[in-house]
Design a protein around this nucleic acid. Structure first.
Lengths: 137, 137
DNA sequence: CTGTATCCATGTGGATACTG
DNA sequence: CAGTATCCACATGGATACAG
């Protein structure tokens, strides 16, 4: 007996999932949609110079972040080569973070998103409101 | 008695959360990080012309999507004014979707992300691999 | 054909306490 | 100062069944 429709669908889905998981755009989308990465990126890019900031500075500037998430975000960005982590063995220990060229290039790409958002999100909001009004009426 | 440190932290966090929730960039980031929106956007933008596609076409082109998620994604994009939904009362009913100018402009913004991904994600992957190697060694 | 409804698995992120 | 560890709540999304 030939494959059932369910089997064929499952196989198509598996192929598609495999395709998506290696798609560069999707991987990037997954990275920057993590709640804090763009905020860390922006914090470290506030100067044109490759600026370095300490862990506690970042925690203060990005006011809402928990220690867990800040550490986790910094670790993954370091792993991806978007920033460098420098430990200075003073007492107590000093740790600074700094964007790499790659990290800075990602920051400018993200600014493209920011531009669209600032130019068009109010329009989206308006559409959303009127759509909701029609539904309520 | 003055506020405790915990109280002050909670208030700072509340202010920060409020700020984030109205930030246009963050709202947009939240929109496009939804798993299927960019795929629907790209599917409907594959032609330069404002192309219209039927529900079943979309379901086929975006092979991995479930009915629930496709419908949910289309509804939210319609609500935000990024696409239009047209019902033609044939039997059985025909429904077509088409990007609005706003939707097309978002698509070009998203292509900026795509460009960065295609240009730099292999570098990110390489960094990731070497970082993992060092950890394993 | 084009959905809606329900249940459930998973991942992300927050709160809290502890450490070198 | 700069984390680590544990537990937990919530949102997203997938599977399946049903309907106009």
């Amino acid at each position: 007996m030939a494959k059932t429709a369910a089997q064929r669908r499952a196989e198509a889905k598996a192929r598609y999932d495999a395709f998506l998981s290696v798609c560069p755009s999707r991987q990037l989308l997954h990275m920057i949609s993590s709640k804090w990465v763009t905020l860390v990126l922006c914090a470290l890019a506030t100067c044109d110079e490759p600026k370095e900031m300490r862990y506690s500075e970042l925690a203060r500037v990005i006011a809402g972040v928990s220690q867990k998430m800040l550490t986790q975000t910094l670790r993954s960005l370091e792993r991806d080569g978007l920033l460098t982590r420098t430990v200075t063995p003073t007492v107590p220990v000093t740790v600074t973070y700094q964007l790499t060229p790659l990290g800075r290039s990602l920051h400018v790409a993200v600014r493209g998103i920011k531009s669209w958002a600032e130019a068009h999100m109010d329009e989206v909001q308006a559409n959303r409101s009127s759509a909701d009004d029609n539904k309520g009426a």
